[in-house]
């Protein structure tokens, strides 16, 4: 029983950064801009959150800094790939390298040396009264504030995407930008918003890593999570609920690794391959093929 509770709690903790970043990827890719830079946006925000909290003494202020920096990196991707028509994939890879090098550089400038930053006061765990007392399931309701934010963001994202006018336009811009343009809606603005939101959400994922899951920044701490988030997005068929479910599945796999297996022993390396293998399976079409938004990857040129 305790083991199950701990496993569930760990699953949610590990799924949260993946889910934030996957929701981020969703806004970008649904607007027609591929975002391979999620990893970098997470990493730089993980640093920014800690630096902000360290500098101001306030964890909440740190989170705001993380969001702002995530937005900034989103906008870098947007300027390069939307305005300057740079290749979206290459721009995303550049964002990742920029964050990797940039955090290394900033660690030295801010904290005097690379490696791990000084500790900060992390977001505290909040138990929801009554709900947190339920056996096993209670683990869902005994989490960091940021996790509750995620619980709210999943349905909100679904509603925005499928029920709001903005969402309709965003999806249309990712499929047939010409039609949206003809209807008098600004394609570039929509894509900027999509990629900007993407940066902020990935930033939330990064901030969760350094300010909730852990309480310091370590160089390279995202450790491929941005790519697992991309995998969750694809496996979840570019749908917020699907992406969240996939993030939970991959979070479970990580929880199993960190908790040293559940009865049977599969080498850690094979469990870590699991999300990536699933994506390939999804792409070649078992259980309905995963098809990306039609216009993703192409810069839009007004004729």
């Amino acid at each position: 029983m305790d083991e199950l509770t701990a496993l569930l709690a760990s699953t949610i903790r590990n799924a949260t950064p993946l889910a934030f970043a996957a929701l981020g990827g969703l806004f970008s890719e649904r607007s027609g801009v591929i975002n391979i830079g999620l990893e970098g946006m997470m990493l730089i925000s993980a640093f920014a959150g800690v630096a902000g909290a360290q500098g101001s003494g306030s964890t909440v202020f740190g989170l705001l800094v993380a969001l702002a920096v995530g937005l900034l990196f989103g906008l870098v991707h947007a300027v390069a790939s939307i305005t300057f028509e740079a290749d979206q994939i290459i721009s995303g890879i550049a964002i990742n390298l920029l964050a990797l090098g940039g955090t290394g550089l900033l660690m030295v400038l801010f904290f005097g040396s690379g490696g791990t930053s000084p500790r900060i006061e992390p977001f505290s765990r909040i138990d929801i009264p009554l709900l947190a007392d339920i056996p096993i399931v209670g683990a869902i309701f005994s989490q960091s504030v940021l996790v509750y934010l995620l619980y709210a963001l999943v349905p909100i994202t679904w509603w925005v995407l499928y029920r709001s006018r903005f969402g309709l336009r965003l999806r249309a811009v990712g499929e047939v930008p010409e039609a949206v343009d003809t209807a008098g809606v600004n394609v570039f603005r929509l894509r900027y918003i999509g990629v900007g939101l993407s940066g902020m959400l990935a930033g939330l994922g990064g901030a969760f890593l350094s300010m909730s899951l852990l309480s310091a920044f370590t160089e390279g701490m995202t450790n491929g999570r941005g790519f697992i988030a991309l995998a969750a997005l694809i496996f979840g068929r570019w749908n917020p609920v699907g992406a969240f479910a996939a993030a939970l599945l991959f979070g479970f796999a990580q929880a199993v690794v960190f908790r040293g297996g559940i009865g049977f022993t599969v080498p850690q390396e094979f469990i870590e391959m699991f999300p990536y293998l699933l994506v390939i399976v999804a792409l070649v079409g078992f259980g309905g093929r995963a098809v990306p938004p039609a216009a993703s990857g192409q810069p839009y040129r007004k004729e």
């Binding site: 300057f84 550049a94 920029l98 290394g104 550089l105 030295v108």
Partner: peptide
């Protein structure tokens, strides 16, 4: 810091395919 090399490399990558930038 030697990390500057990675930053320079990233910026090269960011702009090396930027068609519109060269056009501007």
């Amino acid at each position: 810091p030697l990390d500057l090399a990675d930053v320079l490399l990233a910026i090269v990558l960011l702009f090396v395919t930027a068609t519109k930038l060269v056009e501007y």
